[in-house]
Design a binder for these strands. Structure first.
Lengths: 139, 139
DNA sequence: TACATTATTATAATCGTTACAAAATTACAA
DNA sequence: TTGTAATTTTGTAACGATTATAATAATGTA
């Protein structure tokens, strides 16, 4: 509880109630939510919460570097408070987004060796284990 | 010219004039265009070309597997007729999207080893060489 | 307390994309 | 060819995610 406030302050963000709740949601759920998901869920506790606030807050989180954008879907943006380098897997059957670790040290890249790399996003799509099992037992 | 028609036919797509022109644009320009870019450019030659046709055509190309979607931008979709496995680099200064090759054989992935992988997308954002040079000489 | 600053909210506007139906084109049988 | 069915293209309206704007509320400060 206290730590989230400090984390916000240390990141140069004034820890308002809404910001604390939105960041808590991101950090606890780890579900790579859309704005819609965050807003809908927090409305139960904060009935006045505006969708604009969710948009503004997330924009600020991204600018201050404490949240990253996930663009694994065609249309809507997802957010992740885990800013460490990791990949995202989207199951094309259940649409769930999983985290995974990858070693980008021995990732051999050609053609753009001298460019400055600031962000690396690795997205993999396919079928997750759970769905593989379910799809198999159906037949 | 003839080859593009054959490529479409072989892919199960009737080679209409619009489809040929859109695929030609993708294959010749290799600029990872948005729908807007394709439509604007081809309007010079095909004044009646509708944006809906561009959308429909690209959707069909993706379904038939001769074009891939690039989701490196937050808002708009880009398209690429190069369906080989390769990565995309977006320069945050000039917004240009570059292709690059990478070796995903020694890409070590943890946590989701047993999932079925269908698509892999590697996006890197940063500053391209051209902009690095320009930005340096400005100071 | 009074005033300035910042945060939140509600509403309207924007933009990319999709749905839909009409018009144009193409395919094909008579 | 000619007529008719099927397909393709087009234009417009609708939709959904996001942003802009202005008013209201909350907070900080003299």
């Amino acid at each position: 509880m206290k730590t989230i406030e400090k984390y916000l302050t240390d990141s140069g963000i004034k820890p308002s109630y809404q910001r604390i709740r939105i960041l808590s949601y991101l950090m606890n759920k780890k579900n790579h939510p859309t704005v819609e998901m965050i807003h809908k869920e927090l409305l139960h506790d904060i009935p006045t919460l505006s969708k604009t606030t969710v948009y503004n807050t997330l924009k600020q989180f991204v600018e201050k570097g404490i949240t990253q954008i996930i663009n694994i879907e065609d249309n809507k943006t997802r957010y992740d408070a885990d800013i460490s380098t990791h990949g995202h897997f989207k199951c094309l059957n259940c649409n769930k987004v999983y985290d995974f670790r990858f070693d980008n040290k021995n990732l051999e890249i050609s053609d753009i060796e001298d460019f400055d790399f600031l962000q690396t996003h690795l997205y993999i799509k396919g079928i997750c284990n759970e769905c593989k099992y379910l799809l198999n037992t159906k037949n």
